[in-house]
Amino acid sequence: MSEALLRVEDLSVYYGMIRALKGISFEVNKGEIVSLIGANGAGKTTTLHTITGLLHPKEGKVFYKGEEITRIPAHKIVSMGLVHVPEGRRIFQGLSVYDNLLLGAYSRKDKDEIKENMEKVLAQFPRLAERRTQLAGTLSGGEQQMLAMGRALLSNPELIVLDEPSMGLSPLLVGEVFEIIKSFREAGKTVLLVEQNAKKAMSISDRAYVLENGEIAMSGDSRELAEDERVRKAYLGA
């Protein structure tokens, strides 16, 4: 079996005395959409923050493309092709839409390719193209999510880690966001998705992990998990 694109091994993370992650292990293979679902406080965001270096684990390791990245500082991870779209979009409100997108390409030096990439992203998100000179803070919530995703694409990632991309959006926009995530896979990218909207997440992902109190409670094929009685009761509201 070939090496997984992302492999998390026995990860334990503490906030002071509180153990937020209790030795979790999972992997994401190239070309997959993998979702990580779980209740509030289960450790989903902590997991993502640890993967991209915003938090450092007490124990355990993170491997990306077979290379250990556990102790690599966050700002060096983007250029390895692993990008994190944080919860709450976290766009730079005081900068223009265009400048936000440019910051997505901050760690790249290939000017021509950045330009090409920029045109592609503006074509994929016409609303951002229309508003490119506007301050990002004036965008609607949905547009801000598009901007956060477009900005991530400008780092030319292989693996996109998305934290609650549908949070706070209207049902129509939620659908749009999930279509975009599917388009990432069609463009050959790999996705690790954290979502409260477990139903939607499982409907587009290949595999899923269920996180409960800092531990992986269940894992498997998304379609099979979605049929599971426990998952349905706890996360799908059925």
């Binding site: 991209t52 270096g53 915003l54 500082p73 966050a74 700002h75 060096k76 991870i77 983007v78 250029s79 990008v83 994190h84 944080p86 976290r90 766009i91 730079f92 409100q93 005081g94 900068l95 400048d99 910051l103 997505g104 901050y106 760690s107 900005r151 780092s155």
Partner: peptide
Amino acid sequence: VAVSEDRDAALLMGI
């Protein structure tokens, strides 16, 4: 500007 607005988000941009 990015760091002044949001230091963690800036880190995630590779800054």
